[in-house]
């Protein structure tokens, strides 16, 4: 760091000093810890969403059983596999970049984004099936499903929104990756990976709690 005194520094010099004083490793550690803390806060939000459903599951067993009967587990199981696979593609993409294989990374992350898109399409099909059954978000006193709709849609849609954000992020990672920005420091891929795996972990829990139990 150059010797500077307060007098020599015009106020405009405040702009571009943020990356100058940290080594790449320090910066990477900061970013990783930051992402983990962000994910920690997400755990709490998802737990609120999940608890809304579990309350229903405990109190209105019959309604949930009927919905399971009508819907089956075929579609959602397929969707689960898609998301699990996309998580695997993700980690393989990071591995490829860490080995210096940019083309491989682009292929794997591209597959990840595709997995996310297929998942969202699956969710869309599922939602439209549900709406045919008359399961809607708002409370409907006349419907046999009563509050099932809101308690089901809130957590799954919130998760779907995270998948959507993840797909957008994946495309951004692809764009930057194609420019070679991760060749020397794949931290950007790793951060996205943490997010994407977290979204996968949430789905593992949602799948079990909402569709199976």
């Amino acid at each position: 760091m150059a010797q500077v005194t307060a007098q020599q520094l015009p106020s405009a010099a405040h702009a571009e000093h943020e990356h100058s004083h940290l080594s790449e490793e320090e910066q990477n550690n900061n970013l990783k810890l930051g992402v983990w803390l962000y994910l920690a806060s997400e755990i709490v939000i998802f737990s609120i969403m999940i608890v809304g459903y579990v309350i229903l599951r405990i109190n209105e067993e019959e309604v949930v059983a009927q919905a399971h009967e009508q819907l089956g587990v075929g579609l959602v199981t397929a969707n689960t596999f898609v998301l699990l696979a996309s998580s695997y593609f993700m980690v393989m993409g990071l591995r490829a970049m860490q080995r210096g294989n940019r083309a491989g990374m682009l292929r794997w992350i591209g597959a990840t984004a595709l997995g996310g898109i297929v998942f969202l399409i699956g969710q869309y099909i599922e939602y439209s099936e549900l709406s045919h059954l008359g399961i809607v978000l708002g409370f409907d006193a006349a419907s046999q499903w009563s509050t099932l709709g809101m308690r089901f849609y809130a957590p799954t849609f919130f998760h779907g929104a995270h998948v959507f954000v993840g797909v957008v992020w994946a495309l951004e990672v692809l764009r930057r990756g194609a420019q070679g920005r991760y060749d020397n420091n794949p931290i950007g891929i790793e951060m996205f990976g943490l997010y994407w795996h977290f979204v996968d972990v949430v789905w593992i829990m949602l799948f079990t709690l909402i569709y199976l139990v």
Binding site: S87, M90, L194, H197, F198, D200, V201, I204, T208
Partner: peptide, 13 residues
């Protein structure tokens, strides 16, 4: 489910 989540966190993350 917890085992699966744990595997993803432990190895993939």
């Amino acid at each position: 489910a917890i085992i699966k989540a744990g595997l993803v966190i432990w190895f993939y993350m």
